[in-house]
Nucleic acid binder design. Sequence first.
DNA 1: TCCATTACTTATCATTTGATAACGAAATAA
DNA 2: TTATTTCGTTATCAAATGATAAGTAATGGA
Lengths: 145, 145
Amino acid sequence: MDKKELFDQFVAFTAAVHQVTHELTQDVKIDNITPVQYKILEHIKVSQPVTPTEISDCQHMSLPNTSRELRKLQERKLVEKMIDTEDRRKHYVCLTADGEKMMKEAFACIEERFQQLIQHASKKDLEDIQDALNILNKKVFQPKL
Amino acid sequence: MDKKELFDQFVAFTAAVHQVTHELTQDVKIDNITPVQYKILEHIKVSQPVTPTEISDCQHMSLPNTSRELRKLQERKLVEKMIDTEDRRKHYVCLTADGEKMMKEAFACIEERFQQLIQHASKKDLEDIQDALNILNKKVFQPKL
DNA sequence: TCCATTACTTATCATTTGATAACGAAATAA
DNA sequence: TTATTTCGTTATCAAATGATAAGTAATGGA
């Protein structure tokens, strides 16, 4: 087994993943949301409640810039902040009802495209895919330990 | 087999792929290259010779903007253009020796990090990973058809 | 020949994103 | 109490990216 070969395969694979991700998410109709703002909303959606610092770390952006984007999202009533009662420096960010609705629609659109992508897969194919996802998650993409 | 469940798994997986890709490529020492320029160089590296129109399509950017970035890369002697002798409207873009060197170093750096990522994988693990990559490529991420 | 199309360029402008300094309020440690 | 640290904000500036209009040159077809 050639590790170099595996690397080449890995590079091609990640390129394909990025390509497909782009196709699935492009032009998802969410009015006037910038890519960065969408990423933030997506992150809040799956991890809420979440603090600005956590968003900053996970999205690899500075806290001031995170704060700015959160303010814009808040002004548009897509997210809301709450102050931790224990430690009043901490803010918890959640989606508002509007924000939930928008993200739900976005995910529905993406899921529809995804289902189209695998529409021709047999029952066995689907199981194989699931197994493959599990293996790669466990052996390669697993976030630290 | 629940297709909805598979979608959720897929979303989590692609998020993990993007995360790992970011970790592998962040701070790859290539002096003053912007992310977009790096993507272009990467694309040229694996597909050269390539035309501006092809880059424009694959990188999802307009031809004028592609042209601008290529000019900057050309000014820095990282890429060079040749005119098609058959159809003199077409330009073929390639990496210069400097460009090749820079990309080779970048890939070496990324590969080193990748090998670290799978350093604890057994021989069987590596085979499993390879199989999983093949399955996903074929069943899901395969570019059209 | 004239016209339409293709491939690419230049120029310009708006928006998004990144980086940094300076500040405030709350918690914590001395 | 007085530091010091943490979490978050505002403000400002620079750079990267996106969008669009206009232009050139080559091709190919009528």
